[in-house]
């Protein structure tokens, strides 16, 4: 993939990934075949800010964890009243990073 496309992807999708992962993503995109460009563009990523709002509103029931795909943790959070309320608050700070991690994992799987 040429540098222009990789840079464009980084510019438009930077908010979905952890900042320290961006150089690695760019490198990976440069090594990837041009035929995967359309697929990379069509992946739907989760919005970290939206996940934070969901976590604030429904984190007590584990909804944030269910949406990310951590089903086991979602069940644990739901059954324990959001980890006695503590886990709910801790997740307000963790969920954006976890969403970005999940987005990176999704991209990595598609580029593999």
């Amino acid at each position: 993939m040429d540098a222009q496309k990789a840079d464009m992807f980084i510019m438009t999708h930077a908010k979905f990934f952890e900042p320290h992962l961006l150089p690695a993503i760019r490198e990976k995109l440069l090594q990837t075949d041009d035929s995967k460009w359309m697929m990379v563009q069509s992946i739907t990523y989760r919005e970290p800010i939206l996940m934070l709002i969901i976590s604030i509103l429904g984190g007590h029931f584990g909804i944030d964890r269910f949406i990310i795909g951590d089903m086991g943790l979602g069940v644990a959070k739901l059954l324990t009243c959001g980890g006695l309320g503590v886990w709910t608050i801790v997740d307000w700070f963790l969920i954006m990073g976890r969403t970005k991690e999940d987005n990176f994992e999704k991209l990595r799987l598609n580029l593999a």
């Binding site: 007590h60 029931f61 009243c81 959001g82 006695l84 309320g85 709910t88």
Partner: peptide, 18 residues
Amino acid sequence: NTCIFNRVTGLPCPSCGT
């Protein structure tokens, strides 16, 4: 009582009483 939902709304959540 550690249930945030119960404290905010006054209603029990699904896991209240566990």
